[in-house]
């Protein structure tokens, strides 16, 4: 009996040490990526190729889900607000919730599951088929050639995608509230414009998306690079990317919101 307890406690200690070690390794890998990204920025065509895969191919899902999220917000917001005779405030509701929270967070979650998982799977498979080692043999640094362009493409495309998401959401809210239900168009836009502040709401939202972009792509490239070089290992790494990214996005969102919107307005 005591022996079983000792083994159990040993297991806990092993896991803690293991996760701390992995976190340190991830931080070292992140710094290495930043240090070696100079070469990939000079060869910008590499980043453009990755922008196509992470940005352009994610655009469709972002645009469609943005539209639907905005439409749902318009519908639900109208249902509640009209009870208080404030249905013209539905524009403010849709715009503020999209620009401040839903745009960055939902776009980041979609981006993590669409682009982040693809990055991890690609790098993991390259590792499993020993392409990364082959590159090393040919004196091509795999971090500079494979990892850094994917990282920067993700960081660039995340704010753009989130902006598209929010814009489509506002358009969706407009479609439902003004076109379908018949809220007054003039007060829909004017209330929105009087309540949404550029520096306070929109810039803070953009800062959020930039932070999410760095976090998601850093997690994705690290999990891919660190994957066990087997089919099972790659699939596990892909799952870990999505799960970790989602948790990190939601956690970071709370921290950033607490700093940005605390006690103002």
């Amino acid at each position: 009996m005591p022996r079983r307890i000792v083994i159990g406690i040993q297991g806990v200690g092993h896991r803690v040490i293991d996760s701390v070690w992995r976190l340190g390794y991830a931080a070292r890998f992140f710094t290495l990526t930043l240090l070696k990204s100079g070469a990939s920025i000079r060869r910008f065509s590499l980043i453009i190729r990755e922008l196509y895969f992470t940005g352009v191919l994610t655009m469709v899902i972002i645009l469609v889900s943005g539209l639907f999220v905005g439409m749902v917000l318009g519908l639900q917001g109208y249902e509640t607000l009209q009870k208080y005779g404030a249905e013209t405030a539905v524009g403010t509701l849709v715009a503020l919730s999209l620009v401040r929270e839903l745009g960055p967070v939902v776009a980041a979650l979609l981006f993590a599951s669409r682009a982040g998982s693809a990055i991890t799977a690609e790098i993991g498979l390259m590792k499993a088929t020993e392409q990364l080692e082959a590159m090393g043999m040919m004196a091509v640094d795999p971090v500079a050639r494979v990892v850094a362009p994917r990282f920067w493409a993700g960081v660039i495309s995340m704010p753009l995608l989130a902006a598209m998401f929010s814009t489509m959401g506002v358009f969706g809210g407009y479609l439902v509230a003004v076109v379908l239900i018949g809220v007054d168009e003039g007060s829909f836009w004017s209330q929105m414009q009087s309540m949404v502040d550029f520096r306070f709401d929109i810039v803070n939202g953009i800062i959020k998306t930039c932070v999410f972009g760095v976090a998601i792509t850093a997690i994705a490239v690290f999990e891919g690079y660190d994957a066990q070089p087997t089919a099972e290992g790659v699939s596990g790494a892909t799952t870990r990317t999505v799960v970790t990214s989602a948790l990190v996005i939601l956690g970071l969102d709370f921290v950033l919101t607490a700093f940005m919107f605390r006690g103002v307005g």
Partner: peptide
């Protein structure tokens, strides 16, 4: 590929502009 990426960046920057001018103040 360049064309698509160009369109993507233009659409993203356009969305930011719409947010700033039409949605924001």
């Amino acid at each position: 590929m360049d064309l698509w990426v160009g369109l993507f960046v233009i659409a993203g920057v356009g969305a930011l502009l719409i947010l700033a001018l039409k949605v924001g103040n």
